[in-house]
C-alpha cells in the first residue's frame, strides 16, 4: 500500500467507525415504533393544552418561587466566590510556591466540579432537608471548585511589574495587593462571577425537581398534575428571566472589561 493510500485510509476508517458508533447509539436509544407514534400524538395533545399559557390563579406563589430561584443563584454564586478567593490565592503558582499543595488543591477543585449540581442537591436535601437552603449549598459547592481554579489562573496571569513598582516605591504587602494585583485581577474575577451567576440561574430553576427549592418544584408538580397551561406559563417565566439576566449581565460584563 502506498503512503498516499494509507493517508486516505485512516480518515476513512475513522469516519466509518464514527458512523457505526452513531448507528449503534441510535439503535440503543430509539423507542419502539408504537411508543414513538404515541409520544408524538401525546406531545401534540399537550402542546395544544399549553395554549394559552395561564398562571391558573397562582401567580404570586409562582413569582415567589421565581424569586427563590434568583436568591438561590445569587447566594450560591456569592458564597462560592467568597470561599474560592483564599483558595485561589493558595492555588496560584506565583503566590503559593509549594508544588505539592498546588497540585493537591487543583485536583480537589476538579473533583468538586466533576459532580453536577443536581447530584449535590440530592445529597444536601438528604443532609439539611428540603428547601432553597439545600439548593444554595448545591450551587455553592461545585462552583467553589471552578472559581478557585479560575481565580488561581487570573492571579497567575497577572503582570508582576505593577506589583514590583508598588514595592519599589516603598509600599507594604497590602499596598502591593491592593494597587498592584487587584486592579488587574478584579475585572477578570468579576466577569467570571457574573458569567456563573447567569448559568446558575438556569441550574437553580431545575433544582426544585429534587426538592431543593425554587421554581423547579412548581414545574414538576404541574407536569405531574397535567396542568399544561400552567407548565407553559412557568416555562415562559423561566425563559424570560434567563434571557433578561443574560442580557443585563452580558452588558455589565462588557462594561467591566472595557473599564
Amino acid at each position: 500500500m502506498t503512503d498516499a493510500a494509507a493517508r486516505h485510509l485512516k480518515p476513512a476508517l475513522l469516519w466509518l467507525g464514527g458512523v457505526a458508533l452513531l448507528a449503534f447509539a441510535c439503535w440503543r436509544v430509539a423507542p419502539t415504533a408504537e411508543a414513538f407514534a404515541m409520544g408524538v400524538g401525546k406531545l401534540g395533545f399537550l402542546v395544544g393544552f399549553m395554549v394559552p399559557p395561564s398562571a391558573g390563579g397562582a401567580l404570586w406563589p409562582m413569582l415567589h418561587a421565581l424569586a427563590e430561584t434568583l436568591a438561590m443563584a445569587f447566594l450560591g454564586t456569592l458564597i462560592a466566590a467568597v470561599a474560592a478567593l483564599p483558595l485561589g490565592f493558595l492555588g496560584a503558582r506565583n503566590v503559593a510556591p509549594a508544588a505539592l499543595l498546588h497540585f493537591g488543591l487543583r485536583r480537589g477543585f476538579d473533583g468538586l466540579r466533576g459532580v453536577d449540581s443536581l447530584i449535590w442537591a440530592l445529597i444536601f436535601v438528604s443532609a439539611v432537608g428540603m428547601g432553597p437552603f439545600a439548593g444554595i449549598l448545591a450551587i455553592a459547592v461545585p462552583d467553589t471548585g471552578v472559581f478557585a481554579k479560575l481565580f488561581a489562573e487570573a492571579i497567575e496571569n497577572a503582570d508582576r511589574r505593577p506589583v514590583e513598582a508598588v514595592r519599589a516605591t516603598g509600599g507594604g504587602r497590602l499596598a502591593e495587593a491592593r494597587y498592584g494585583l487587584l486592579p488587574q485581577v478584579l475585572p477578570v474575577i468579576l466577569s467570571h462571577i457574573l458569567y456563573f451567576f447567569e448559568s446558575n440561574v438556569r441550574s437553580a430553576s431545575i433544582l426544585g425537581v429534587v426538592g431543593a427549592g425554587g421554581i423547579g418544584l412548581a414545574l414538576s408538580d404541574r407536569i405531574r398534575l397535567n396542568n399544561w397551561d400552567e407548565v407553559a406559563f412557568l416555562i415562559l417565566l423561566i425563559l424570560g428571566t434567563v434571557i433578561v439576566i443574560d442580557t443585563v449581565s452580558a452588558r455589565i460584563r462588557r462594561g467591566i472589561i472595557a473599564a
Binding site: L75, G131, P132, F133
Partner: peptide, 9 residues
C-alpha cells in the same frame, strides 16, 4: 433580601 427569600438559616 435573598437570604430571607432563600431561607438561609
Amino acid at each position: 433580601v435573598s437570604s430571607i427569600v432563600g431561607e438561609v438559616d
